[in-house]
Design a protein around this nucleic acid. Structure first.
Lengths: 222, 222
DNA sequence: CGGGAGGTTGACGTATTTCAACGACCGTGG
DNA sequence: CCACGGTCGTTGAAATACGTCAACCTCCCG
């Protein structure tokens, strides 16, 4: 595990604007900076914090005994993650690239909800949308073809990163594969095929993808 | 976000035993009886209620345009389901067999939380465990073999139905298939193979399965 | 008795995985 | 400054596990 510094305080705010709430709440957590590959916590660790992504990308995943891996979600700026019902983490969280998060003490939960009533709503809403996302992803994993999986992945990621048609993917092919339930070879082949078909363009350098034909991609999304 | 407004019945109880809370809360919702196949709501319906299963089985699922289906969860007695962040349902809920549920007005949410503080905890915890279950299921869908899927399905279902080693499955093979991301033929073949291998016993009549060799099933669960 | 739904089994085809090789890129250190 | 090694990505060839298609059986219920 990693060591950090950072501290906090948080004086009780006298009234709440949304931005002000966000600002104050952040004071109730500590900021952490991570490099790609760094672990935030692994399956089995005691649950001490939950998190909000400030910048960068976090992947949460589960492993099988023989190292098969399923990434259940990528978390981008603004996303909360790390809620657990148990004392031990049931999944692992790692930074995909250079990332900053805010870690909230799990025990501060009640206090936060009390001091910042909006906070409960934010969390509820984070959970509800995590659940919705999870159901979508189960549909993808259980029933979609590789082409459909990749199409949805590209469109979703573009939307979540709020880039237009040019997205710089922060994760490697193996991460995409473990997210979509494919092998990295199939991810690679499908991307090059889409590129040949003119749906996307793969820039020679880096992990940049250009969405050339959103319409066809959307149709693939079924 | 969850939209609430409104209030509900229910006089504020002066102190809370868990059973008493459950009883009072139920008065805040209406009881419904369903036959197998009945719909509670379908994708696109306006969200009016959320639900708690009293008895029987509910399946929640999503469809692709060409009728491919993914069941994301079976809900048994005691389970809550039907939370949404939007005004329209993003998935469908149907009774699998003869089922009773309690339907809570969505708008009563705030009132319930207010009148029954334990309620918020119950819901939070229902959501957290739904999320955990969802992550488990994504691992299964993305990375497990048919044998492993079936083994986990049988063990989980036995545990959730709180039967011992003899479980009466309420759902048909096609439901199991759509839950596990397989075809009904593969489900059938895998079950008969497990039966030949002595891991389980398929009773000639009905949908009863006997777990003969939990240990091996657990090992398959990886 | 007939028909439909649900389940099982068989034969077959193929999409995706597996295994393997290669190439580009990048940071490091001699 | 270039050589080296490692990581990441791509491509090819081959094997196979699962899906597809189809037949058949049983059980019900009308």
């Amino acid at each position: 595990m990693l060591n950090y510094a950072a501290t906090v305080v948080a004086s009780r705010p006298s009234f709440h604007s949304s931005a002000r709430i966000a600002h104050d709440m952040h004071e109730a957590g500590e900021r952490r900076t991570l490099a790609g590959g760094d672990e935030l916590f692994v399956e089995g660790d005691p649950v001490e914090f939950f998190y909000k992504v400030v910048s960068g990308t976090v992947r949460t995943s589960k492993l099988l005994s023989d190292a098969r891996r399923q990434i259940d979600s990528f978390h981008f700026a603004g996303d909360f993650f790390g809620f657990e019902g148990t004392e031990e983490h049931s999944f692992t969280a790692e930074a995909v690239d250079a990332t900053t998060v805010i870690a909230f003490k799990r025990s501060s939960f009640r206090g936060l909800v009390h001091d910042y009533p909006e906070f409960a709503d934010q969390l509820m809403s984070a959970m509800v949308s995590s659940l919705q996302r999870a159901r979508d992803h189960m549909l993808l994993l259980g029933r979609k073809t590789p082409q459909e999986k990749i199409a949805k992945f590209l469109l979703d990621t573009a939307a979540r990163l709020k880039k237009g048609d040019r997205i710089e993917l922060p994760m490697r092919r193996a991460d995409i594969a473990d997210y979509l339930g494919l092998t990295k070879e199939t991810v690679s082949r499908t991307l090059t095929q889409m590129s040949r078909d003119g749906l996307i363009r793969l820039e020679a350098i880096g992990r940049t993808v250009l969405l050339n034909d959103r319409l066809t991609l959307q149709q693939l999304n079924a």
